[in-house]
Design a protein around this nucleic acid. Structure first.
Length: 575
DNA sequence: GCCGTTTTCGGCCCGACTGTTTTCAGTCG
């Protein structure tokens, strides 16, 4: 059984939680959390590292943790974790996820009431024993009661970024409209462009914080407002999304925006850098003694720390500060760099609009080319095209191209990868296409070995250009398929063929970490909308965000190329 | 547990809000 980075990260996170419950040194706990984060977002598998010394060279990983990673990869076990699990009741860890319960209080519950898990806590609540524990009063009791009810009802859910946007933007506009508010921005993981968003962090610029927060309380989509002070408030929207708001004056807006954008690890690194240079950095400014030397904008903050401005999408402490220091930050791709879209459906398969409407929408978006890639006929996809219908569509596209002078419609298909790695359409018809996109739409649960073999076999077929939504995940619904991604990348580079970043809100596939791995292997990416209507061509925006989080520049993307260059690159894939 | 152009020991980001506090610890972001 292969040990993946995710497994190592989870083991370290669990160790951190259990050590915290034991009351260990907070910095030791932090070291485990940091190591978990580093391993989780590493493009290469730690199990493939040649030696403990190589592991030791990773940031935040020293001799001890390198040894633990090595042990886990070799044996699939971690003795230190097993020992902790024997010492701490297994149910206690879950209690940490309840609001208001941290390690100290969880330990108190165990020590004073013998509580060993959520069920014990629920019983203690209903019998009124909880109030007897020092530090637990009426308020905590009622919060826990609500939280336990909520947890049973739904549990914590992160929202795909595009869904969160539908709530975030109207709220931002509302805040912006409040008297005295000169600026309102959405910060947090939303601004960093993460694929999913757990809560909304909004930053408001105003001299009168109390008024702004009072006005927030009147927002029609707000279900409740809690923790409302004069500069800070928390609330919950009617859809269950948690909202945190901070109000700062103009002279602090830049440092506050930076601080509330995060990530936490990025902030820690920057604060340490400030400290080393004799400053203090907090959300109100960068200070030398009492004197504020920066604060109004992010640019002046970075400049004061001898760094160029770092794009929010990069602020994950994955090497961006070092790259900034070397003046080697990537020039991130932008929406305007895209010249076409290589994955679009029409009503010939499961799209909602005919070919001509899609072409018209592509022209409105000033695309130079758009590939029509309707589904192949296969189980599960209704109205998929067989070879005969695809041949008719090819004719229709050629006829349409005769009438267009500012857009080229490329002939394509999204061909199913069958369980054994064969494709759902014969080579004879695929050879007539400009673009062959292949994808998994069934058999998601295969073992890693089988799934990888399946995909590699499909990539080896003549004519294949692009592997679409490579992990087939659906956010909140279906986990990524088990795939040896390094082998897929190697195959894609050698062949060559290309990997897609799919901009469908539920997919956002590849994710940021895999995107970064792909570019580091020199495999080109296709940023695609997978649109099923003209309006959905806009989904490439989501793909752009994913790409930027993966450090992608314009040159690393297939569909930033002019048509003649694109054709050359696609011909290379036609064995 | 990690880390080092002041350090191989002694530091480790910083502030707001809550609850139960009589001066602050715990939690959260």
């Amino acid at each position: 059984m292969a040990v993946h980075n995710q497994d190592v990260a989870e083991a370290f996170d669990e160790m951190a939680d259990l050590l915290a419950i034991q009351g260990e040194n907070p910095f030791r706990i932090r070291a485990y959390q940091r190591a978990a984060q580093v391993v989780r977002t590493l493009p290469q598998e730690v199990s493939k590292f040649g030696s403990v010394q190589e592991l030791d060279a990773l940031p935040g990983i020293g001799a001890d943790l390198a040894g633990k990673i090595s042990e886990l990869c070799r044996s699939g076990r971690l003795r230190a974790l097993e020992k902790l699990r024997r010492q701490v009741p297994p149910g206690l860890r879950e209690l940490l996820s309840l609001p208001g319960l941290g390690p100290v209080r969880v330990r108190a519950l165990k020590a004073q009431l013998g509580i060993r898990g959520i069920d014990d806590l629920a019983r203690a609540l209903s019998s009124g024993r909880l109030a007897k524990v020092k530090g637990f009063g009426r308020g905590t009791e009622s919060r826990l009661r609500t939280a336990l009810g909520d947890k049973a009802a739904r549990g914590p859910q992160r929202m795909p970024w595009p869904v969160a946007a539908e709530y975030a933007e109207p709220l931002r506009k509302y805040l912006q409209s409040i008297t005295g508010v000169t600026r309102a921005e959405i910060a947090g993981s939303y601004r960093r462009g993460r694929d999913t968003v757990g809560d909304l962090d909004l930053l408001v610029c105003s001299k009168r914080g109390a008024d702004a927060i009072k006005a927030l309380g009147r927002y029609e989509d707000l279900r409740e407002l809690s923790a409302a002070g004069t500069t800070k408030a928390s609330g919950v929207l009617r859809n269950g999304l948690q909202v945190d708001i901070r109000v700062v004056p103009a002279e602090s807006f830049g440092t506050a925006l930076h601080y509330f954008t995060g990530s936490r690890d990025h902030n820690i690194r920057l604060r340490r850098r400030a400290q080393e240079r004799g400053y203090k950095l907090n959300e109100y400014g960068l200070f030398r003694g009492k004197k504020r030397v920066a604060g109004a904008t992010e640019e002046e903050l970075f400049a004061a720390l001898d760094l160029p401005w770092i794009a929010p999408e990069l602020r994950e402490d994955r090497g961006e500060i070092e790259a900034a220091e070397r003046r080697a930050l990537p020039a991130l791709i932008e929406l305007g760099d895209l010249k076409g879209d290589l994955h679009v459906h029409t009503d010939a398969s499961d799209g909602r609009e005919p070919l001509e409407k899609i072409a018209a929408a592509a022209r409105t978006r000033h695309l130079r080319y758009v590939a029509i890639t309707d589904h192949s006929k296969y189980l599960g996809v209704v109205r998929g095209l067989d070879a005969e219908r695809l041949a008719r569509q090819i004719d229709a596209i050629e006829a349409l191209n005769e009438r267009l002078d500012d857009l080229i419609v490329l002939k394509g298909a999204e061909v199913d990868i069958l369980e054994d790695g064969a494709l759902a359409l014969p080579d004879s018809i695929l050879r007539r296409l400009d673009v062959v996109v292949i994808a998994i739409h069934s058999q998601f649960g295969l073992s890693e070995a089988k799934q990888t073999t399946r995909v590699l076999r499909a990539l080896d077929r003549p004519s294949v250009s692009i592997l679409a939504h490579p992990t087939a995940r659906l956010l909140g619904e279906r986990p990524p398929v088990a795939l040896n991604f390094e082998r897929v990348l190697r195959a894609a580079r050698e062949r060559p063929c290309y990997l897609e970043i799919n901009g469908q809100p539920q997919r956002l596939d590849l994710d940021d970490v895999n995107v970064k791995a792909t570019r580091e292997q020199g495999v080109l990416l296709s940023i695609a909308s997978d649109a099923h209507s003209g309006a959905e061509l806009a989904y490439v925006e989501h793909g752009i965000r994913q790409a930027r989080r993966g450090w992608v520049t314009k040159g690393e993307v297939l569909n930033t190329r002019p048509l003649n260059e694109l054709r050359t690159l696609l011909r290379k894939t036609m064995l």
